[in-house]
Computed example of a mutant assay.
Amino acid sequence: MSAPDPILELPFDVRPEPEQFLRAALKWHFEPATGSPFWLRIAETLDFDPLTEIRTFEDLSRFPNVANQLRDVPVEDLIPRGYGPKPEITGIYDSGGTTGAPKRVVMLREWADVLVEHSSAQLDAHGVPQGVNWLMVIPSGPHMVGETFHQLVRRRGGLAFTVDVDPRWVKKLIGRGEKAEAELYTEHLIDQLAFTLESQEVGVLMLTPPTLEKLSRRDDLVALVRKKVKAIMWVGTQLDPDTRDLYRTELFPETVFVSGFGNTMTLGHVTERPGLTDDEPCVYDPFSPYMTYRVIDEETGEPVPYGERGRVVMHYVGKSLFLPNNLERDYATRIAPVEGQIGDSIADVAPVKEFDNETVIEGVY
């Protein structure tokens, strides 16, 4: 095991100087003694030297988008050699599989711990209570969201009740034109959710907009949520502003209502910016400098003006993984960053219609 630059191992609430952090990360990932086999192979094909020619986060756009290679690369090749022969791995996680074979990443323990601490602090900023149980109707299995939120609930002193969601099956149903079957599947999720909500103490409900919409049609469950649940966190698919306002002001006016946005290719998730009014869209600030977003014009590759929509490009830079210049399947509105942040903030996130020559189906997650 090799000793990294200490700047790569800071606590979640200490933000490193960005360019010093970037240089340390590049040295870690591209030195033969510490880099991963995956990136050391790619380095041989580049027409620039990452150690000397990449100086700023803007320079990361020089890297090729290698995300598609994560569909079949051996996951062992993604782990930096600097961790030694027995790195502590918390999970191997797949992307959603919306556009064909899933991409696959490795999460190491030290990043998982930093991510959970950051996420917990964000929930505190929204007034989500600690020491309460969560009921989570989200994907588990190969998907990162299930495991990371299990860790988060434990960190916050609660128990986690779960209903498993298989987003790939729902997308297959919709892709075959079997929308009625997809609707029945969502009702099946509600039936399972109801058993736990009726019998257990639940302080936080975490689910997707399609599932929340189904729940809201059942007066008995709406009454139970109002009685028991202190906070609702919605994740996954998009939620239009009018429906969001309806939930916040009419259906669940006494409940904290907060959204989360996550992405496997940035090894994590964030919650919406605290303090937004009912008239403002959900704005997501990245956990920079580890996760950063850019909103670009697809034709020119240049950033669109603030307030305009464009295609989202994401970078992940950290000790456990390096994944720059990943063109995502989402459009978003470019929002000015908060002070000290690297890259853009984003709002009104919605999928493109087609990605990697595959039709994008949003489904239940």
Rank of each mutant, 00 (worst) to 15 (best):
G262M: 04
T266V: 15
R248E: 14
D245E: 13
T249S: 14
E250L: 06
L246A: 02
F261I: 03
P253H: 11
G262V: 01
H269V: 05
F257R: 03
H269S: 13
L246D: 08
T249V: 10
Y247H: 07
G262C: 01
T264G: 07
V256A: 15
T249E: 13
L267G: 01
L267D: 09
F252I: 06
V258P: 11
E272W: 01
T271F: 15
G260I: 06
E250G: 03
F252S: 02
D240K: 00
T266M: 15
E254N: 15
T271S: 13
D242T: 09
E250S: 09
L267Q: 12
T264W: 04
T271K: 09
V258L: 06
G268F: 12
V258T: 12
D245W: 07
L246F: 11
L251Q: 03
R244P: 01
Y247N: 00
V258D: 09
D242R: 06
V256L: 00
E272N: 13
R248Q: 14
T243Q: 12
G268M: 11
P241M: 00
V270A: 14
G260L: 00
V256P: 05
H269I: 12
T266Y: 11
V256R: 15
G268S: 12
E254V: 02
P253M: 04
H269A: 15
T271N: 13
V256M: 07
T243I: 08
S259C: 03
T255R: 10
L267I: 04
T255L: 01
D245K: 15
H269T: 12
L267V: 02
T243R: 11
E272V: 05
T249M: 06
P241W: 02
R244W: 00
R244I: 05
R248Y: 09
T266R: 11
E254M: 08
R248F: 01
G262I: 04
T255K: 01
E272F: 00
L251G: 03
Y247F: 15
E254P: 08
D242H: 03
G262S: 04
R248S: 14
T249D: 02
E272L: 07
R244C: 03
T266S: 11
T271E: 09
P253T: 08
S259M: 02
T266F: 14
N263I: 05
E272D: 14
P241H: 00
H269F: 14
L267K: 09
N263S: 12
V270P: 08
P253W: 06
D242W: 00
T243M: 05
E250F: 01
Y247P: 10
L251N: 06
T266E: 12
T264F: 05
G262W: 09
